[in-house]
Each structure stands twice: as C-alpha cells, then as structure tokens.
C-alpha cells in the first residue's frame, strides 16, 4: 500500500505532473517578465493553476480527426508519447538520490526513451494529411539529426567521468560537473535541450508564423492536451537531466536528518535556475531556418561534443 501511494502521489505521478505544470508556468512567467509583460495572472495565486486550466479546457473541446488521416496513428501517438516520456521522467532522481525507478544503466534508457519520443513526434506530425503538419514532421525528423547526438554525447561524457551509467550513482557522488571543462558540456546540453524542446531559437518544427504550428496543427481535444502535457514532461525531463548530470541533482549541503526535506528543495531550486537560463535563451533570439540549424548542429555542436567526449575519456584514463 505504501509503495502504491509512493508511486501515485509522492514522489510519484502526481508530484511529477505538478512539477511539470509548475515548470510550464514558470517558463511562461519568466518569458513574460523578460518581455515586460505579466504572464498568467488569474487562475490560482499568480496564475499558478494556468497550465492545469489549459489542460482541462483542452479536454473539454470537440475531438476532431481530420479526413484522410491515419486514424490509428493519430489516436495512438499522443498516448504513446505521453507514456514514453512519463516513463523516462520516472528515472530522474528528484526527491532523493534514487529516482522513482532506478536500474543499472538507466541513463541509456532515458536517452533511448527520449529518442523514441522524438520519433513519435515525427509520426504524430506525419499521420494527418495537412501540409503544414507534414512539413513540421519532416523538419522535426531533420532536427533530430542535428541535436540528438550532441545531447547524448554530452550526457554520456558525464557518465564516463563518473564511472557509472546509473543516474543515482552519478548523483550520489555529490559532484558539480558544471565547473571547468564540463561547462562546455553543460552549454552543449542546454543548446541541444533547447532544440529538443522546440523552443526559440529552434522552434522550427512548430514555427507559428510559417507553418502555423507544424506537427501539432491538426491535433485538438484530449490528443492536444496529452501532447502538450508530454511536452511539459519533456521539459521536466531535460531540465531534470541537466540538474542531475551537471548540477549535482537533489544533493546539497544538509544534515542527514533533514535530507528528505532539503533534497527536494535543492532539486527544485536547481531546476528553477536551469529553467531561468532556458527561458532567457528563448526570450533573446529569433527563429533559425532549418538549414541553418542543421549546419549549426553539424559544424559546431557535433564536433564540439565529440571533442568534449574524447577529452573526458582522455581525462579519465
């Protein structure tokens, strides 16, 4: 019974979903602040419940399947995307050095699940016949080539230097990999994460002013709600991964007796600072073109991450 509650409430599903929605709120609020606006205001204190309200609103909308779309894919993709990304998030240590799930080599599992999610983005964009959606899906697939390898390499470098592919082992060492050489890795990770999350300057698959909202354009009702929630979870996953790999995860200075209370607090604090950086990047740039992004990825990001990986391996030996 205790175990079931642990999986469901804290630090389980409810906690993860709340955190994901909180991060969406924080991102919106921060970007609004950067743009001299106010952001969400009315639902709940300071608009904290706005993501939840959006979610519920989308659930109440009419469910439309565009004529000529692949009905099975169209229905399955949102559900699978959400499930896959939630599974990945549950490997992230959030309230203690151990995640909800933990196994040997779970960093690889998380990265694999992330790639599966991105492929699901492609299929969900390709299933309706809309041209905007098709173009968005093609762009998403093309983007995947540009940022997925750098993201993996910068993550694996940390695992190499920590000597373990298990997230809880990396975190338990209590080291902050952001200093020195690994700062490059941190930057590569952030850039790749920004691209992975379809956020400015890399929101090319969604590109509102060009292809309306790209691969998402035909989705409505619970499908859109799930896809949006999946995107929030992806945000949580990537910021959580950045915190765990480079900022020491939930570990921080605390007496052993207070650890169950202080560690979630440290984690959220670090999460907020990473979100601040990502939001600042989102607020400071225009959107790149797809060819420009791919050339950025292959000319700078990939060589840089390769050099970083080789340097860490040399450093370890």
């Amino acid at each position: 019974m205790m175990n079931f509650l642990r999986m469901l409430l804290y630090p389980g599903m409810v906690y993860i979903l709340t955190l994901a929605m909180f991060l969406e709120w924080l991102d919106r609020k921060l970007v609004a602040k950067f743009q001299n606006r106010v952001g969400p205001m009315y639902v709940g204190p300071l608009g904290l419940l706005q993501p939840l309200a959006d979610f519920l609103k989308l659930l109440s909308k009419e469910s439309i399947i565009p004529a000529g779309s692949d009905r099975i894919l169209f229905n399955i993709c949102p559900i699978t995307a959400f499930v896959v990304i939630t599974l990945a998030v549950s490997f992230i240590p959030m309230v203690s050095v151990r995640g909800l799930l933990s196994t040997e080599g779970d960093l690889i599992v998380v990265l694999a699940l992330l790639t599966i999610y991105l492929l699901l983005v492609y299929t969900s964009g390709a299933s309706p016949p809309s041209r905007y959606s098709q173009i968005g899906a093609a762009r998403a697939a093309l983007m995947l080539l540009g940022f997925d390898l750098p993201l993996m390499m910068s993550s694996i470098s940390v695992a190499v230097i920590a000597g373990s592919f298990r997230l809880s082992d990396i975190v338990a060492q209590g080291r902050y990999y952001i200093v020195g050489l690994h700062f490059i890795g941190f930057l590569i990770f952030l850039v790749a994460a920004q691209a992975e999350l379809d956020r400015l300057p890399f929101d090319i698959p969604e590109a509102e002013s060009e292809i309306v909202s790209g691969w998402l354009v035909e989705y409505s009702s619970w499908r859109l709600a799930l896809l949006r929630l999946a995107k929030n979870m992806e945000f949580l996953l990537l910021t959580g991964l950045a915190v765990n790999l480079y900022l020491g995860g939930p570990v921080g200075p605390s007496p052993p007796s207070l650890e169950p209370f202080l560690q979630p607090f440290y984690f959220i604090l670090k999460l907020v600072s990473v979100t601040f950086l990502l939001s600042l990047v989102r607020a400071s740039f225009a959107r790149l073109r797809i060819d420009q992004f791919v050339s950025l990825g292959w000319h700078y990001l990939l060589p840089l991450s390769l050099i970083y990986l080789v340097m860490t391996i040399v450093l370890v030996n």
């Binding site: 970007v31 950067f34 743009q35 606006r37 400015l200 509102e208 002013s209 607020a283 400071s284 225009a286």
Partner: peptide
C-alpha cells in the same frame, strides 16, 4: 517583422 522571424521579445518591445 520580428514576429514573422519568431522573435517574440522584439515584437513585444516594439509594441511597448
């Protein structure tokens, strides 16, 4: 123009 490039911040600032 900023909006068509996806530059939301410049869009907001120009309108401000």
């Amino acid at each position: 123009f900023a909006h068509t490039m996806g530059f939301e911040t410049l869009f907001m600032l120009a309108f401000r």
